[in-house]
């Protein structure tokens, strides 16, 4: 049994590295990533699982880090936007104007990156389902759709 009773230093596997963080058992992953590890790419948008701005990958699956306890993530591979480097989806977002203020961008990137990693040619309905987990208030979403499709169909590699 894994137990955390009080403030404890835990090891998290983040972006391929082991990182130590002092946490309360009740801390959420988003706060630990930001305040504990300085990884501020994941953003607080609602702290209620509704907006997706805090999305990170846990073992390759998109997860809203505002609704995961840090304790739950111990022993799993966490990927944040800081762990992406010159990926096709990042390039596509730039080239296809898929963001304006940029605040929702890391969350969308993580969802798109996971989708592209898990599926070769998902049907439109699946793209819609994955991306409707996130909110963008600046764009019309059309640009984001174009960016993820450009990556999925290999136009941007």
């Amino acid at each position: 049994m894994y137990t955390l009773k009080e403030k404890t230093v835990v090891t998290l596997r983040v972006n391929g590295e082991d990182r130590q963080a002092l946490i309360r058992p009740g801390d959420i992953l988003l706060d630990t990533l930001r305040d504990g590890l300085g990884l501020t790419g994941a953003k607080p948008g609602c702290l209620n699982g509704d907006c997706g701005a805090c999305t990170v990958l846990v073992d390759g699956t998109p997860i809203k880090s505002c609704l995961m306890l840090t304790a739950e993530a111990v022993g799993h591979e966490i990927t944040t936007v800081e762990g992406l480097s010159d990926t096709p989806i990042q390039r596509a977002f730039i080239e296809l104007f898929a963001f304006q203020c940029g605040y929702c961008t890391s969350g969308f990137l993580m969802v798109c990156h996971a989708l592209a990693g898990q599926m070769q040619t998902p049907p439109d309905a699946v793209i819609d389902e994955w991306l409707e987990s996130n909110i963008c208030r600046c764009t019309s979403y059309e640009e984001i759709g174009k960016a993820v499709r450009a990556v999925l169909n290999g136009e941007i590699k």
Binding site: M1, Y2, T3, E6, P25, G26, I28, A71, E72
Partner: peptide
Amino acid sequence: MIPFDFEYHRPASVREA
């Protein structure tokens, strides 16, 4: 931020739980 402290337990079996 949850405004109170609590413990976290992750049992490995039904019995442990």
